[in-house]
Design a protein around this nucleic acid. Structure first.
Lengths: 344, 344
DNA sequence: TTGTAGGCGTTATCAA
DNA sequence: TTGATAACGCCTACAA
């Protein structure tokens, strides 16, 4: 039953190929009885259209590319984040009968002609691109490749791209507000480099929450190149060795940063949350099972994938003009790593 | 430069299309000068073959499917495991000019005709399937779909399938041997259900290491349906409430199991590794940063993906007959969660 | 409403 | 060694 073609269907239904084609594509210029007869024949034969042939004829592949710029082992961003994105995208794309083509990429731009193979070899109609380590030049090149491109969690200031991003400023704000509400007035914020706009946005959100708060509060910003667990650990190690009072709360702009911070604190004999509260941002799996479980702000990865897929599908179909920006709201996840300060 | 076809190349080189085709496919029956001329023309024009057309002509798609049966949020198996597999597969497949098509799947078999869309719609030439929650019936149906299929980490006893699996018995053995060498003589083993052959194999390996050891040692097997972090936690909670001496070491047949065990131990005021040693199996990211960092046995996920891809490519090319079983060796990763017993 | 014919870009067969 | 020519399976004017 593998090689049933439209010719077979047409023959069985006693019509020509073109009629069969029209009947199956629900074209208007067809009589109801013939349409029904063709559909029946197709069903009986177990006909499946050859998508390669259709692609050739329709001048488009029916493939949507997903580019994952997330070198394994970098732990730069949670791996589960991308698997969730992939899951969301996969469902949405399959539902509309298209195919998801995936490629990992280093996200680096090595001059003209260095576009991902799926793009340069014309294997896809549109692409979804995600991953923090994408270089600006790479993003720019990709954005102008001639295909609809939707970026997840990444944008270029001053350029209009199709993007689906978590509301990063809001997530920073939510985190700080929560700490403020608990009564903290001295909060350290652990961030990756501000060149990465995810951090810039989260940081600004955190900052604005402090600024706009009626209660006076102090923020101690700390930056580091590595925004993974060891990075958070290292930052807090340094924090511990310096003079003066410790902040009563530490916010990691990434769960891994927060987890690293917690490790350093615990190792120094401090109690979390009694001595210092620790707050994360992302809600990756380890956050739920750390000791103590990490309070954090959840970024909905599966939604991001699904939304990006639907957007890119609309763009491909020409039903949406673009550029489009979709912003997905985060929400607070309270666990056990934060408490009211000052009981030490 | 998008729509340069072979016709354009042929015209520029002053030859016919068929000659151009042969020249570029490095066919033997071609003169060196013409071949060179054609190649030059192709390069000048930035020619990229239309793979849809090629697929149509060659009667195969040039797509390799990757099926990921790993419902997000189940934390059944580490997500990063599959992202690593994907990364390995993606690299290998792109290197040979083919395309990776990915689909998430629930791994359930709902009767005939329930094969994944990528298979039933003939979008791929071969498939790689991975994921623990795959049902036996699903595996069987997939294995007989008529395409070459390689399973990662999954097999059916009594059936010959193409598989790429970590050496599960060996990993169990390595873990237990390490504990034995440290001097432990009473080891609890935390396992998921033995119906899942991954656990059966790991468990048997652990068992055999105990049995074959010249020193007498006792093993306390514990089983549970959930093999995630809460599962490990729960098992050790129960272990702690019962009579008698505690084992001096606990082996989780999954890192998450071990991490859960560690949490229960720490919560009960016990010290790891002074009071009880804890050992994992997998080496997922959180293992490296738990407190204390988890000693474990590493399962090389990226290699699994790469090997599966190369195997499925060979199968597709008919260069390998099959069924083929590839077994990948694990290795010990020593961190800080295990120590010599009896100093409590 | 239906059928005929041409084209999408490749590869493969068969003469020349 | 090369060049017509015919598939591959589908879609879509255009004609009937």
């Amino acid at each position: 039953m593998a090689n049933v073609t439209l010719v077979d269907v047409a023959r069985l239904a006693g019509v020509s190929v073109s009629t069969a084609s029209r009947a199956l594509s629900a074209s208007p210029r067809i009589s109801l009885p013939t349409a029904e007869r063709v559909r029946q024949a197709a069903a009986d034969l177990g006909y499946q259209p050859n998508l390669q042939a259709r692609a050739l004829s329709e001048q488009r592949t029916g493939n949507i590319g997903l580019l994952i710029a997330n070198p394994v082992g970098s732990s730069v961003q949670s791996d589960e984040f991308f698997l969730a994105v992939l899951d969301g995208a996969s469902r949405a794309i399959e539902k509309s009968g298209l195919t998801l083509v995936v490629s990992t990429s280093d996200g680096k731009y090595g001059g003209p002609g260095t576009l991902p193979a799926m793009v340069s070899r014309q294997r896809v109609d549109a692409v979804i691109a995600g991953g923090i380590p994408m270089e600006d030049a790479f993003v720019r090149a990709l954005a102008h490749c001639g295909l609809p491109v939707v970026f997840i969690g990444r944008y270029l200031s001053g350029e209009y791209l199709n993007t689906v991003t978590p509301d990063n400023p809001e997530s920073g704000r939510i985190a700080v507000k929560y700490l403020l509400d608990l009564g903290h007035r001295s909060i350290a914020v652990l961030s990756g480099a501000l060149e990465i706009n995810t951090f810039q946005d989260r940081f600004r959100g955190a900052e604005s929450a402090i600024r706009e708060s009626p209660v006076g509060a102090q923020m101690l910003p700390l930056f580091f190149d590595a925004f993974d667990e060891p990075g958070g650990y290292e930052m807090v190690r340094r924090l511990l060795t310096r003079e003066g009072r410790l902040p009563t709360a530490i916010l990691g702009l990434t769960d891994w940063l927060a987890l690293g911070a917690m490790r350093a604190l615990l190792e120094a004999g401090l109690d979390v949350p009694r001595d210092v509260s620790v707050m994360g941002l992302s809600d990756i799996a380890p956050a739920a099972v750390s000791a103590p479980p990490l309070s954090t702000v959840r970024v909905p990865a599966t939604s991001l994938g699904g939304l990006a897929a639907r957007l890119v599908l609309d763009l491909r179909a020409g039903e949406v003009e673009g550029p489009v920006r979709i912003i997905v709201p985060p929400h607070l996840v309270v666990r056990a790593s934060c408490a009211t300060p000052g009981r030490s």
